[in-house]
């Protein structure tokens, strides 16, 4: 494994910023499109992994509807990225994410602290998540 250029590091940071914005805005289709067609989302908070874009987008739609009903806004702050390049230009990205939650009329608080482990692959000019594993620190 080797490290990546400054330029690529920036590009990946930009990728995550957009992806987190899409997630928090409940843009389920756009979010799912940042995964490969057969992408997998595994989390220790979920009983089983979501496999494929259709399942991944449905999960986000459902989660966002719940939050909307509870009048709660969440912001995923992702940082502390390490990026290693594997074979065939696959990237292994490890990052931390804090989820800041604000209820209507309330003050923000940290809902969760998590570890995010991604395998990214390139598709044309853009990067896609092939496999994501999210581990909540409290579980």
């Amino acid at each position: 494994m080797s490290t990546v250029s400054t330029e690529l590091y920036q590009e990946i940071q930009h990728f995550y910023a957009r992806q987190m914005q899409q997630l928090d805005a409940g843009e389920a289709e756009a979010w799912a499109a940042t995964f490969t067609e057969d992408g997998v989302f595994e989390a220790n908070a979920h009983p089983e992994p979501s496999m494929g874009r259709a399942v991944i987008s449905a999960a986000v739609r459902q989660a966002h509807a719940k939050l909307t009903e509870a009048q709660e806004v969440r912001r995923h702050w992702l940082g502390m990225l390490t990026i290693d390049r594997g074979e065939d230009d696959t990237l292994f990205v490890r990052s931390y994410a804090l989820i800041v939650a604000t209820k209507k009329g309330g003050t923000p608080s940290i809902a969760f602290s998590t570890l995010c482990e991604d395998t990214l692959v390139q598709d044309g000019g853009s990067w896609l998540v092939k496999y994501r594993k999210v581990t909540r620190d409290d579980l």
Partner: peptide, 20 residues
């Protein structure tokens, strides 16, 4: 943080960001 920057024109940009 979580900044996205998109080009609107040669001399203008559209940004979105979180701030706490």
């Amino acid at each position: 943080g979580m900044l996205t920057v998109d080009r609107l024109g040669p001399d203008s940009l559209a940004t979105r960001f979180y701030a706490f």
